[in-house]
């Protein structure tokens, strides 16, 4: 009796969910893979025959440079986020519980605010006539305004500003789980502070670090509006290249191949993350 009444509901739910994911996630991604091995066509975007030209173009040293530069900026962003975020998350986990809730709340408020508008606010600060230069000049720290806007640095600052919470939150959660016992044990066994840090704290927080890297590095390669606003349409990201290929140059196979590169980068990071978690699991128990 029961199986009769429950079956339709269960089936309906599963069909709906699977249908949605197959139609709007799997199919589109297969289409992109398909497009990446087609030939560019000025009339209808893509056409046969199948070819690996797009990938060959990606590996062309000149183009590769574009990608490496983008990767470099994304990596710098991730590094800065990590350097700021790691001690931050540590300090945060040491604060009393009551204040912690408030502090976490304050951390996610910017994340809930429109990211374009926040990027624009950075422009107000970094511009040649902007607030930072004005403030430093009136304080007499500098005589001439610094050129901050439309530089590589500005793009990295913008990306860090937008993505920092994504680094801090996973780090915070591993520091929260970090058990004092391990630290005490390490201390009792005669390990110094540095050695405890290197041999105990770093490995235990590694999954958080990798999760943070994943959450920062991937978007940092795709957020095309940051170089548009802060980079003076220079200092392009992979995201800009993909966008241009689809919305400007109409080279779909190439844009699709570039997007697959990003997907592969994601897969690699996810794999590393999983691996690190598993290792901790084995060692920890």
């Amino acid at each position: 009796m029961r199986s009769l009444t429950q079956q339709p509901f269960r089936t309906a739910v599963l069909v709906l969910v699977w249908g949605w994911l197959l139609f709007l996630v799997l199919t589109p991604n297969l289409l992109v893979v398909g497009a990446s091995v087609m030939t560019r066509d000025p009339g209808s975007f893509i056409s046969l025959p199948l070819t690996l030209d797009a990938y060959r173009q990606l590996l062309n040293p000149l183009y590769l440079e574009v990608f490496l530069h983008s990767l470099y900026m994304a990596a710098m962003t991730t590094l800065v986020c990590l350097l700021i975020g790691y001690p931050f998350a540590w300090a945060l986990s040491k604060v009393g519980k009551r204040n912690q809730v408030l502090l976490i709340f304050l951390l996610i408020v910017p994340f809930w605010t429109n990211s374009l508008v926040r990027t624009y606010a950075l422009k107000l600060i970094l511009a040649t006539n902007g607030l930072l230069n004005n403030a430093l000049m009136s304080l007499g720290v500098i005589d001439e305004p610094m050129q901050l806007l439309y530089t590589e640095g500005a793009v990295i600052i913008g990306l860090v500003y937008l993505l920092l919470p994504f680094m801090i939150l996973p780090l915070y959660s591993v520091f929260e789980d970090l058990q004092e016992d391990y630290l005490r044990a390490s201390h009792d066994l005669g390990a110094g502070r540095l050695s405890t840090f290197i041999h105990v704290i770093v490995p235990l927080t590694l999954p958080g670090v990798l999760a943070g890297i994943m959450l920062v590095l991937l978007p940092a390669m795709g957020l095309f509006f940051v170089p548009d606003i802060l980079g003076g349409s220079r200092n392009l990201l992979v995201g800009n290249v993909i966008k241009n290929q689809f919305l400007d140059a109409r080279n779909w196979p190439f844009g699709a191949a570039a997007s697959i590169m990003l997907t592969l980068a994601m897969a690699f990071l996810m794999f590393a993350h999983r691996l690190s978690k598993r290792r901790i699991g084995e060692d920890g128990v």
Binding site: P28, L31, A35, G222, I242, F246
Partner: peptide, 12 residues
């Protein structure tokens, strides 16, 4: 990355 999702949906 959002951009990957974006172009795949556009293609669809």
């Amino acid at each position: 990355p959002e951009i990957v999702l974006a172009i795949s949906l556009l293609a669809l």
